[in-house]
């Protein structure tokens, strides 16, 4: 009994530790005073000013576009790679997985500067496109690592059965293999999207002047003081995702024998 209670308390403390800053930001988004140090009364003005702020809206658009496009491209390339890995020898598989682990294990700062050196020596102008390529690069491993386990669980007999029943290889792939891989692909996409959204370091080195994502915008504002509109925007994003998660988790859906791993 005491054990249960102390476990609850421990989880509660960790929860507070992880969520205290988030709560702080939410409270600050309603703070009428521009200073983050004192409470100036409740206001919604930052929320209304947010949508008139061209800079922030543009950064938001860049962030979402880069996250969406890079997650999509990474999902496509990553899934193709996983399918290909299935038919490969162990040695080439180990090699590819080894390369895949490089961006996961290497320091973000090193990945960032190495990509910056590449773009500059290729005479590419640092901007939206270079950031996009960088994000695709660090997103592919997340997709591969979440599709790969599904790949191992595939039952080769179902694919063979589809072929026996007259499906072409392509048909069998799209109607048998792909649906089986779908949960892994989806979670890989979501993971990639989240990682791209939250990235700062690699964007910082590869973005060049004139373009900002939310992260880089916030970083330049850290010294000068962050505009309260940013708090308002983050609160909206956070609450939207929270609602979405609740919707997904609490909508009744068909009960199946398959247990999904969505992490």
């Amino acid at each position: 009994m005491i054990r249960r209670i102390s476990q609850k308390i421990y989880i509660g403390l960790i929860f507070v530790f992880l969520y205290a800053p988030i709560l702080t930001l939410m409270v600050l988004s309603f703070n009428a005073s521009k200073s983050r140090a004192k409470w100036g009364g409740f206001t919604l003005k930052w929320y209304s000013q947010l949508f008139q702020n061209q800079d922030i809206m543009e950064a938001l658009w860049n962030t979402l576009a880069i996250a969406g496009l890079s997650a999509l491209a990474a999902t496509l390339i990553g899934t193709m790679t996983c399918v290909a890995l299935g038919g490969m020898k162990k040695r080439s598989r180990t090699l590819i997985m080894g390369i895949t682990n490089i961006p996961m294990l290497n320091a973000e700062i090193v990945t960032g500067i190495s990509l910056m050196l590449l773009y500059i020596s290729l005479n590419m102008r640092l901007g939206f496109f270079t950031v996009l390529c960088s994000h695709i690069t660090f997103n592919i491993p997340y997709v591969i690592l979440s599709v790969m386990p599904r790949m191992h669980q595939l039952n080769p007999n179902t694919y063979e059965a589809a072929l026996d029943l007259g499906a072409s290889h392509l048909q069998a792939f799209f109607r048998v293999t792909l649906p089986d891989l779908m949960p892994g692909i989806l979670s890989g996409f979501l993971m990639a999207f989240t990682m791209s959204l939250d990235d700062f370091v690699i964007t910082h080195f590869t973005k060049g002047p004139g373009i900002d994502t939310l992260s880089t915008k916030i970083y330049t504002e850290v010294r000068k003081g962050i505009k309260p509109e940013i708090y308002a925007l983050s609160t909206i994003i956070f609450v939207a995702v929270l609602l979405l998660l609740f919707l997904v988790n609490y909508t009744p859906r068909e009960k199946g024998p398959k247990k999904e791993r969505r992490l």
């Binding site: 988030i22 930001l25 939250d198 970083y219 940013i230 708090y231 929270l242 998660l245």
Partner: peptide, 9 residues
Amino acid sequence: LPMWMNFLL
């Protein structure tokens, strides 16, 4: 979930 709030913030 916390990752959806920018880590710099």
